[in-house]
Design a protein around this nucleic acid. Structure first.
Lengths: 137, 137
DNA sequence: CCATTTGCTTATATTTCTACAAATACCTCC
DNA sequence: GGAGGTATTTGTAGAAATATAAGCAAATGG
């Protein structure tokens, strides 16, 4: 049955990402902030957002988003700007320091784990193709 | 460069597991408990453990493990038994209700996401092999 | 305009997580 | 059988996360 195989694969993928090569702690230590702030910083570095959009992206509510952004602003990693078309709204944008910090987080989180690096090239190739397909599906 | 491809693959895997098909919230809602309790329950359902072993498995400290197990016991999902060979130590074991709840959690967490189920059989086969290799490495 | 809605903030409260110090009970080794 | 070490619990404190209510400013739509 392929259902069974799919389950084994899924458990394996979860195990790799969530247990074996989890890097939350490492990133939080490196940046000196909680993981939700790292997520916020990376989300904002990827593209500036209104508070509402950020809250939706992080799956948090608006008041908490305010606290998180307050903290990033206090650290000099982000700025609030008034939305040009709706002055109720703020666009949150990372500063150059924020960009740099987000890049540091990315480099830790995106670093492939050793087993992936020592995969035979043709396997890596195949995996690349399959993962792309899974992401597009 | 294969390093670059490995990075793309790793980012893709993280995205699949952590963003697209994250099921923490769902499991916590279904069982009515925080995720660390779900993890504890599943760990104990997989095999009974002493407090120390459980704490090590969950990467939490001993006092917090006591709180978590207290809660599971209060819910009737686990029991403490005196270790037969060391009366300082307790073996924590899930109850039948705990086994049932852990199975419910498993069925949510292990359910392969749709894109994985609609993968061509030969791709799933290959993926299965590669994931096994990554886990063993 | 005025009422209503929307976007955000402030305030407040609760739960969850993390950490550390100290107490208790038991084991082991001399 | 006493010293020192281990397993767990208790207590405490604080940070982080989550939720709700209330408020302000600006937009929208009669």
């Amino acid at each position: 049955m392929s259902e069974e195989r799919a389950e084994r694969v899924w458990r394996g993928l979860r195990s790799l990402v969530l247990e074996r090569h989890e890097r939350r702690r490492e990133v939080c230590d490196a940046l000196g902030m909680s993981f939700i702030r790292v997520k916020a910083l990376r989300s904002l570095a990827a593209s500036p957002k209104t508070m509402r959009e950020l809250a939706a992206d992080l799956l948090i509510d608006a008041p908490y988003a305010t606290l998180v952004v307050d903290d990033l602003v206090r650290r000099g990693l982000a700025r609030r700007e008034v939305h040009p078309e709706d002055r109720r709204s703020r666009i949150v944008r990372v500063t150059p320091e924020g960009t740099e910090a987000a890049a540091r987080a990315d480099s830790i989180l995106s670093a492939p784990p050793p087993p992936l690096l020592s995969l035979p090239p043709e396997d890596l190739d195949t995996l690349d193709r399959i993962v792309a397909r899974l992401l597009s599906g």
